[in-house]
Nucleic acid binder design. Structure first.
Lengths: 227, 227
DNA sequence: GAATGTGAAAATATTCACAGCG
DNA sequence: CGCTGTGAATATTTTCACATTC
């Protein structure tokens, strides 16, 4: 492996999030140490995969504070190491755009705050909603986006608008200086250089199920198969 | 390539969903044919990737009904071919479990029906909600799950309950004979053999952004880089 | 003995590049 | 020509297996 180069692979990054969440739960239960085997079992990942993934954070691990042969990982130290790498040790202010069904659900959800991604402002394209109170927030008009982003140091925009306005709003978010977009609209959005996008795509997920089920039933007209 | 063997790769399957959605839009606009290059551009995928992906549905393509050299693909024929493979040419009845914030948003969303995944029943673990009317549905108690699944031929369960009850409900869904679960709970759920799971995981998506942004800013203390 | 960390091997996925069709 | 379909070449990701540490 090149000494310090290469970026963390996408699949690894996703699993790091899962590890971090699992560790949070275990730490809450008072757990002190944990082996790669056990962590992997809880998440359906091989122990080798867990260790390989964790080797990516090794660079930033000061010394051997986390993994110890024969014992496993120190939950607290590992948790902190992962958070430092993933960036969840700091706070990411988010702005929600769109107070339709999804938007409102996200406002009620609350999990965002706990995870370090507090929603600090809510906006909507419909000017008539401006000033209205929804889920504890006063809705701002899109015209004040730039101001809001600067004032609250918003780094992430949550795009919860219909497909028809998604690309326009995405552009506005980029222009306002946002650095990442969580996109709930069922389409690919184009963004400025340097802006990251993560998609939450219900139909892709549902169709994944559709395909898996179709293949499964095709593969087993009656009994079971595989190991 | 082995004549007819091997399963459709996960990444390919996901992209097939995207292609299918894009085609639906284009067909709605009256578009007749489409090249792999153009389809790819719209989705941020290389043309070679598109063609390779489509080669997976070739097996089930009767003749050369879709792609034609020099012309491109016939939108309608390709759309239908993909749907046949992904399984979206048939209807998948779903049952929603959990009428909290997410559950309610999904009920209001409506997109499910259009996509061929109608919600036909709504349940909740809280017995006090049974009989209540929410979003046009009368909430059923979990005790009637099996009956509901059989009566409406439900194949997919939508798991929109808190982490604390997710695994229990997942088991109940499996026992009731469901074939797939769309899991919104922030954890891995274990299911019976033959049951498929697709996860919608907000915190993984957010943390992806967190990591991408961290790396981006680390990589460019000021100016821009890359092509 | 139990577990990590990691090169080397295997499996998967993407890109290249070109023959061949319309 | 423009564009598909696809083997061959690359690149990426996962798994193996084992030396090493506690």
């Amino acid at each position: 492996m090149p000494p310090t180069t290469r970026r963390i692979p996408r699949p690894t990054a996703q699993r790091l999030s899962l590890y971090s969440r699992e560790l949070q739960v275990l730490i809450g239960q008072g757990r002190e140490t944990l082996s790669s085997r056990e962590l992997g079992e809880k998440l359906g990942v091989s122990s080798a995969q867990v260790r390989k993934d964790l080797s990516w954070i090794g660079q930033s691990r000061q010394t051997h504070e986390a993994g110890r042969s024969g014992i496993g990982y120190d939950c607290g130290a590992l948790y902190e190491s992962i958070r430092r790498v993933v960036g969840t040790n700091r706070r990411w202010a988010t702005a929600l755009v769109g107070v339709g069904n999804i938007g409102r659900a996200l406002l009620g959800y609350g999990g965002f705050v706990d995870e370090g991604f507090p929603i600090v402002a809510v906006l909507d394209c419909d000017e008539r909603l401006a000033g209205k109170r929804i889920g504890g927030f006063v809705v701002d008009p899109m015209s004040s986006l730039r101001k809001v982003v600067q004032k609250h140091h918003v780094t992430i925009g949550i795009l919860a608008v219909p497909r028809s306005s998604a690309q326009i709003v995405a552009k506005q978010l980029c222009d306002a200086g946002i650095q990442g977009i969580l996109n709930f609209a069922p389409m690919k959005i184009s963004v400025s250089e340097g802006v990251s996008v993560a998609n939450i795509d219900l139909s892709v997920a549902l169709e994944q199920l559709s395909l898996d089920i179709s293949l499964d039933s095709k593969r087993r007209p009656s009994g079971e198969d595989k190991e």
